[in-house]
Simulated assay, not measured.
Amino acid sequence: MKEANLSVRGFHVKGPAARTMLETIGETFLTGYAYAAEAREPAEAEERLEELPWQFRGFAYEGAGMGFAIRDGLPFGGRQVSRFLEGRARNHVYMVYVGIGWAMARLPRFRWAKASAAAADPLLRWLALDGYGFHQAYFYTDRYVRRQYQEPNFPWPAGGPARYASRVIDQGIGRAIWFVGGADPDVAADLIDAFDESRRADLYSGAGLAATYAGAADEAELRAFLRRGRNHLPQVAQGSVFAGAARFRAGLVTPHTTMASGLLCGVTPEQASDLADAARAEPFGTSDVPAYELWRRRIASGLAELRTAP
């Protein structure tokens, strides 16, 4: 649990309230991981997860996704994540896929095929790379955040494209930067703006997701973050939609979720969920652009249409 302590991580501490929120999130993630590691069956872990404080429960399901993916990747493991997603974890599917990426960051690459076997959805599988990027920025902050290291020719998923994999990893790094910056909008934006301009849109998207889902910032601070990210507002909004949709789908909408969604993407969490579902329901065809990126673009376009509607 000490690994979730901001001072141990060397992260910025904005104040006691934000520190407590961010550390509780980390501790809840680890609790979910432990429940998955200890469970005889996924249903056993599910029962314990449902007893955790509801506003943090999504992070516990993310940790459990990591735990079951680790078990799938080990010798004699298999189908733990798939069986987990057959229960109430299906309402947290985005978080579970992200947790698979955490497992990939901890397992040798020759174990990735087994650990990620449940990430079969050609659209959602990219979320595992968001989790991988978050892990790397959270635990190797100096290399991935302060020195802006970028993974070259990333080997997963099979068939790539590797260049796009690096972009999704950046979205996870951006999400982690919200934690590294202690939910302080200026510190987080300073960290993002130190990256090459070509990477900032994806980083701001991830930070917008974290600012909505994790929170630890008030209305004035979120407005400050919008000002700092003014050159990447469509990406901030798209990340916020993902967060609002994930919380709405799981029944975990908090007052902060509603406030942040309204500010960062201009819709309610329910509208965000509807928008994400509608953008996903349309066929993606055979474009060279990954379905995940087309999904993100459709969401950004849908938000723009909502803003201009009479």
Rank of each mutant, 00 (worst) to 15 (best):
S273F: 15
Y138H: 12
L127R: 08
Y61M: 08
L263G: 03
G63D: 07
A211R: 01
V13F: 07
Q55L: 13
A183G: 06
R298S: 02
E282Y: 06
G77L: 10
A128D: 01
R199N: 05
I100H: 01
A278N: 14
R147P: 05
R297H: 12
Y292H: 13
A137H: 08
G302D: 08
E50M: 15
A117H: 12
L263H: 05
V236Y: 00
L209A: 01
E151G: 00
A69Q: 05
H256M: 09
A115H: 00
F195P: 03
D72G: 00
G99S: 09
A291E: 13
G208A: 10
E46R: 11
A278M: 11
Y149P: 00
T212Q: 07
M259W: 05
A246P: 06
I70G: 01
A158M: 10
N5T: 12
A43L: 12
G58C: 11
Q136K: 14
F139D: 01
R175Y: 09
H92E: 11
G262T: 12
D190N: 14
T20P: 00
A304P: 05
G285D: 09
V81W: 00
V13W: 06
Y140Q: 14
G65T: 03
T20C: 09
K2S: 14
A165N: 04
D196G: 14
I70P: 01
R106T: 03
A278R: 15
R19D: 10
A237F: 00
V93C: 09
I173L: 11
V96R: 08
R249G: 09
M66A: 07
G63R: 05
A105S: 13
H12L: 10
A304I: 06
G266D: 12
G131V: 02
M1T: 13
Q238W: 01
D274C: 10
A278L: 13
G206S: 06
T308P: 02
G215A: 09
W295T: 02
L22Y: 02
A64H: 08
